[in-house]
């Protein structure tokens, strides 16, 4: 059964298209990674799904209900975490959790106490005195403790330290094990790899890749920089080698798949020094889809 379903969902702001004919389905109990660079339309999608903004065209439903018309009914079964949590500065963390729990109507207080401990959150401090990461923890705990059927998480780990990111990932995995559905919007590849079953990649308001995580891994390419003893050989015809740049005796390129053919070629002229690193998401996009055109979307 599909929990989330969109059909040619489009959002325009004047002449700017923030989201362009999005077709998306997320099944029950699935952790769905929603990837894309800044301004790709991830937050717009979530705002549409929450009924905070209206679509220009197309439809979206959650649990079979219309996201705009039936928003309050949907929200009883949904929890949301934005990337920046601007909360009420004069309330304490405990008061914000109490308020969110009361308004949502369902809260597992025992689990909430457990989450407070796991996220190492001080509850009696006022929001204005909390760091960005700690504010984020308050909203995360509030969302997770309501044990919703669907979690809409929009770059939820912004501001969290690596230790807390691990706690967050564990919580998402536990949610999946309990049968909860998660939509995780992010631009952190490692986060997606750690918790997601399926992903969609978004660019300039359009989905450019969707499928199982393996499909994403197939896109991955290593960025290689090698300093050689003599001018580099021609490697551009090798399988999986792209974006070759030569500067004197230094060669840079991206390699998808096996490294062996490249290493053989380079070893033939003598390698003085070589480094490799995983590409950023943006580099991956460039490698896979060519130079990014000027974005047609605003930061949304």
């Amino acid at each position: 059964m599909n929990v989330v379903c969109t059909d040619r969902l489009t959002k325009q702001y004047g002449h700017t298209t923030a989201l362009d004919a999005l077709d998306l389905t997320i099944g029950e109990g699935e952790v769905f990674g929603y990837l894309g660079p800044n301004g790709a339309g991830k937050s717009t999608t979530i705002a549409l799904l929450l009924g905070l903004i209206r679509s220009t065209s197309g439809t979206a439903s959650i649990f079979g209900l219309d996201v705009w018309r039936d928003a309050p009914a949907i929200h009883r079964r949904v929890a949301y975490v934005p990337s920046e949590s601007d909360l009420w500065p004069s309330l304490t963390g405990a008061e914000v959790l109490e308020f969110l729990g009361n308004v949502h109507g369902s809260v597992d207080r025992v689990y909430r106490d457990e989450l407070v401990e796991r996220f190492d959150l001080v509850l009696d401090k006022k929001i204005r005195a909390l760091s960005h990461g700690n504010r984020q923890k308050v909203v995360l705990i509030g969302a997770l403790a309501s044990r919703p059927e669907l979690l809409l998480l929009d770059e939820p780990t912004t501001g969290l330290d690596p230790l807390m990111e691990q706690v967050f990932r564990a919580c998402v995995r536990e949610a999946r094990d309990r049968g909860q559905t998660v939509l995780l919007s992010t631009h952190v590849l490692s986060e997606v790899e750690a918790v997601c079953d399926r992903v969609a990649m978004l660019r300039a308001g359009r989905v450019i890749e969707t499928g199982r995580l393996d499909a994403l891994r197939g896109l991955a390419a290593l960025h290689v920089v090698a300093q050689l003893h003599s001018p580099p050989p021609d490697v551009s015809r090798l399988a999986g080698v792209n974006n070759v740049v030569i500067d004197g005796t230094t060669i840079e390129c991206d390699v998808a798949g096996s490294m062996e053919p490249l290493l053989r070629k380079l070893a033939a002229v003598g390698v003085r020094h070589m480094t490799t690193r995983e590409p950023s998401l943006e580099e991956l996009f460039i490698a896979r889809y060519g130079e990014l055109q000027p974005a047609s979307t605003d930061e949304r």
């Binding site: 905070l52 928003a71 601007d86 308004v103 949502h104």
Partner: peptide
């Protein structure tokens, strides 16, 4: 403007 309203309207509130 600060985004606090989103926290409220993402709840079952009309």
């Amino acid at each position: 403007s600060t985004g606090r309203l989103v926290h409220v309207l993402a709840q079952p509130v009309r």
